[in-house]
Write a protein that binds this DNA or RNA. Structure first.
Lengths: 235, 235
DNA sequence: GTATGTCTAGTTATCATACAACATTGCGTG
DNA sequence: CACGCAATGTTGTATGATAACTAGACATAC
């Protein structure tokens, strides 16, 4: 079974765009030109162009034509749990995460509503009855989600969700044999730190919230990760 | 200017797929059914389906039909140029971007090598001979890429690339009728700011690099965006 | 009863033509 | 010189037709 003309044309165009045959922002060939150049019908061209548009490579306006707006499809920002097996990468991610979550806490302290505050304390309340590993993980997630929402900037929310997904997956993989210690850590250390952060957000103290969140991520857990990463030295 | 029927149909279908109206692996409606259901021609349906295919949501075979192969486009953090048509979102992204790039400049000032510095100045050198819009865009990209590399944390690099791809695409769409003013802005303002930032990084002054980068993103361009976003007030 | 071949109906893929809606450019007029 | 209008160009959509493939039903042969 042969590849369709649409997929052939789309791939050819994608390659040409990637090779910068059409400088960013300049006119992309018209439907008619492409149909003539590839020796296909306008239908095939339009379907191929539709997929290029979806890939974010071109932008089209009726009556004006298309322009190239990117040379390659947006890779996006993803973090796989596998890549975090590298100690160096984990350190880099924590450095990055620390910056994001610290600022999010500051914004949350500035922008929180009463409902936001309630939600943050609800997550803490849930955390008090932690009896199992998955409950501890879920409570930790809820707490950080609540802060992200209170920050009122969807890009913080989205990047924090992406980081959290990856770090949660890694924690699930890593603590398979030692969940009790995480639960204990959660009970004895993390909850207290969460409470302090929640108070600072409730009271509207951005600087203090930032400081406490940074300390939270730079505290005991970070030190343990650093130690673990140095032991690995696998990159 | 109204959205095209193709984009309306594609969005509707994307939503339905995300809401699992069609279980994974089962038959997706035929061209004819969709055309009848949406009250549009088969041409529109085929173009919409072409974009769903590109997004990785469906797979199609001649003679058999389509099946749903994923409920959502792959996860992770992405920014489409379209979403940045919303002034509120753009402000949020600039707030987010400012934090990231400011910190990256600081890290670059701490961690840069001589090769990094050379690369940053090379980007500036390229910027001196700017004669066209696409060259200005490319030089701006090169400058920020060089800083991201000097920061030596791949998560900063990756998120900055993601942001840059989206903001570049948006700039290309937005400046279609006023490219000269961007080139002029680049020549008269942005290059100077780039040079100051490069000097601070070369000299190893993280605080100063942060301050200058923040000012760079908070300066004239940001003010123009803020004004433009308020004018829109579309969300 | 089972295997193979043929036919029919259905589905996607492509082509061609036509018209609508928008954008740009050029020309004529005041 | 500025403005308005017509002509031209481009995308968006609809319609009809044919080609290429798939699946299932039915008939035939072993």
């Amino acid at each position: 079974m042969q590849p369709s003309l649409v997929s052939i044309v789309a791939k050819r165009l994608r390659d040409e765009i990637e090779q910068r045959r059409f400088p960013l922002g300049t006119a992309f060939p018209t439907d008619a030109e492409l149909a003539k150049g590839f020796g296909v019908s306008r239908t095939v061209v339009r379907e191929a162009v539709s997929s290029l548009r979806e890939a974010g490579l071109i932008s089209t306006q009726r009556g004006r034509g298309s322009i190239v707006i990117a040379y390659t499809a947006s890779p996006g920002f993803r973090i796989s749990a596998e890549e975090l097996e590298s100690g160096k990468r984990l350190l880099h991610l924590y450095e990055f995460r620390s910056l994001i979550e610290t600022e999010a806490a500051g914004l949350a302290a500035q922008r929180r509503t009463e409902a936001d505050v309630q939600r943050i304390y609800d997550a803490l309340q849930d955390g008090r009855s932690i009896g199992s590993f998955d409950k501890a993980i879920a409570a930790d997630i809820d707490f950080h989600v609540a802060i992200a929402e209170a920050a009122r900037n969807e890009y913080f929310q989205r990047i924090m969700a992406t980081i959290r997904t990856a770090t949660t997956a890694r924690a699930l993989m890593r603590f398979e044999t030692d969940r009790e210690s995480y639960v204990e850590l959660y009970r004895t250390v993390l909850q207290k730190e969460h409470l302090d952060i929640a108070d600072a957000i409730r009271d509207g103290h951005p600087s203090k919230a930032r400081q406490l969140l940074k300390k939270h991520l730079g505290g005991r857990r970070y030190k343990a990760l650093l130690k673990s990463a140095l032991e690995q030295m696998d990159e």
